[in-house]
Amino acid sequence: MQSNYEVADVLTGLGDGIEDLGLNGWQLRTLRAIHHCRTSMMGGHIDACDACGNISISYNSCRNRHCPKCQGHKREEWVQAREADLLPVPYFHVVFTLPSELNELALHRPKQVYDSLLGAAWQTLETFGKNKGLQLGMIAILHTWGQNLSLHPHLHCIVPGGGVDAKGNWHNLRADGKFLFAVKAMSKVFRAKYVGELSKKLEIDKALREELFARNWIVYAKRPFGSVKSVVEYLGRYTHKVAISNHRIQQVDEECVTFSYKDYRQNGLKKSMSLSHSEFMRRFAQHILPKRFVRIRHFGVLSSTWKRVKFKQLREYFKLKPKSTEPLKALLRRCRCCGEGNLVTIEVFGSRGPPAPYIGVCQIKSTRPVN
């Protein structure tokens, strides 16, 4: 569903007030990129279709990973690349969630808190795998938000329902493929692993440590995916999400931003929430990850090390053939006018805008003005 409003519209309405939110330089830089995305401020290029001859002007994307408008192509490219890594085995969706007691620490020391989350989740699965004599694998995707933009750090993980033994042979954890590990046992191990990992990076005071061990931590393992295709669909839904997508923004007026959200305490009931411009952007900014932080990570048999050395053996074992990424690349440059021709860039331009001779003869892509 196409939205008439964008996160960028909130930034326009907030104006210089963004400087009063107490954000760091990296957060401000990210928000400026989102504000200018696909506007004349970013420059652009002029394309011609090699079939119908249509000429169009396109403004450049910011390509920031937090931008709601820049994730579509990245998501499709990433998913297609991951298809080649999928094995014909059961896959499980496992969620590791941090307790709210760590939220304040996550705001001030996000790298340490989130690195520990990723590390502890893998150590937990690795421990259970070793108990079975198997090397497991995992793809972990960090999300830090709840539906109402509150801080809610958690990992969405894809875990094959089996692993490789010391001789390099694959074994499923169960013959029926319907069970991974007991979640209560995983939760206790995850809690201990996380506190241990975080203690290596930060000094945890005694009161916080006691609070963390007093809580029942949440690890949730969903039933296995129905097919390899459903794993790919899941990847596309979760990998390149941002804190809020533009289609959820219902209204932006002079004072408030109204957006939709699902209340999972009431079985996912869809509701609306209104926040001031400043509160909306404050909540949005707390989900901007530290510079160069890797939020999608691969572990075990799905890691880059395994792909370079041993993953080829698994592919041969399952008789899998490599898949080409060429069809996707061709599709991304397809003419929107005729749907058949390929777009060829004939000129590029900077922030001053397109050359005068092209204005009026091109189908100019609609864009949002920047103040």
Score class of each variant (00 low, 15 high):
M1A: 13
Q2I: 15
D9P: 01
D20A: 15
W26C: 03
L28I: 08
H45P: 00
C62L: 00
N64H: 08
N64E: 06
P68M: 04
R75F: 02
W78T: 03
A84N: 13
D85L: 09
V94G: 03
V113S: 07
T124Q: 06
F128W: 11
Q135K: 15
Q135R: 14
L136T: 12
L142E: 01
N148W: 00
P153D: 11
L155H: 03
V159N: 10
P160V: 02
R174F: 11
K178V: 01
V195I: 15
E197A: 13
L202A: 05
L208I: 08
L212I: 07
V219C: 08
V228P: 07
E233W: 04
H240S: 06
I244S: 04
H247R: 11
E254I: 01
D263P: 05
R265F: 10
M273F: 06
H277G: 00
P290K: 10
R292A: 12
F293C: 01
F293G: 04
R308P: 07
K312N: 12
Q313S: 14
R315K: 15
K319T: 09
K319Y: 07
K321S: 15
L328Q: 04
A330D: 13
C337N: 13
N342S: 14
L343V: 08
P355E: 06
P355D: 04
P357K: 11
